[in-house]
């Protein structure tokens, strides 16, 4: 189905691109949010990613799914964005573990929230690379090989990020449930 719309777009039908935007905007926003941690910034990154995907569509070689190709653009744009704007998001978990005490106040407020909200909050609290790896692996169900291709992280790095991410997420969720 995607290929049909991609052909239409390449033949000059701009409206056909709205199908692709509609279809993949949620995936794109989720991926961007894992990295930039701010809804407005994520929306900007996603807009720029869709524009870049449109201008580079003739270079898309159908080797991977369109969603994977778009996801790679979103990840690159998001990483560039935070490197320029807020490099501290990329810092490793030591900071998060130390900041858990201060985050307790926020978690108290989440006491009655459902799992989705807690998980969303927890994903915003852990470092970008961990959140991204967890989301791609568990939510979007990409394999480690695919994540390696998408992010450019090494296989062992991804495994470490998943382990740390699980540990951090578990810690945050446990704290949320306990309070």
């Amino acid at each position: 189905m995607d290929d049909l719309y991609i052909k239409k777009v390449l033949n000059g039908d701009v409206e056909a691109y709205s199908y692709l935007v509609k279809q993949y905007q949620s995936l794109a926003i989720r991926t961007a949010m894992a990295i930039v941690k701010n809804e407005k910034d994520a929306q900007d990154v996603v807009q720029n990613s869709f524009i870049q995907a449109y201008t580079s569509l003739s270079k898309y070689r159908h080797e991977a799914k369109f969603s994977t190709w778009l996801c790679k653009i979103v990840i690159n744009k998001s990483l560039t964005f935070i490197k320029r704007k807020r490099p501290q998001i990329l810092e490793p978990l030591g900071i998060i573990e130390n900041s858990l005490v201060t985050e307790n106040e926020a978690i108290v407020k989440l006491d009655n929230e459902d799992l989705s909200k807690n998980l969303k909050k927890a994903l915003l609290m852990i470092p970008a690379k961990e959140a991204l790896s967890l989301q791609l692996y568990y939510l979007e169900e990409y394999s480690i090989d695919e994540i390696e291709l998408l992010t450019g992280f090494t296989r062992s790095n991804i495994k470490v990020l998943l382990h740390r991410g699980r540990k951090n997420l578990n810690h945050i969720l446990k704290n949320t449930n306990r309070i």
Binding site: Q47, F50, K120, L139
Partner: peptide
């Protein structure tokens, strides 16, 4: 992850794009 609904406000991305 599969039970959670992780979606965010997309705004008017389609129109803006």
């Amino acid at each position: 992850f599969q039970n959670a609904d992780i979606n965010y406000e997309t705004g008017d991305i389609e129109q803006i794009v």
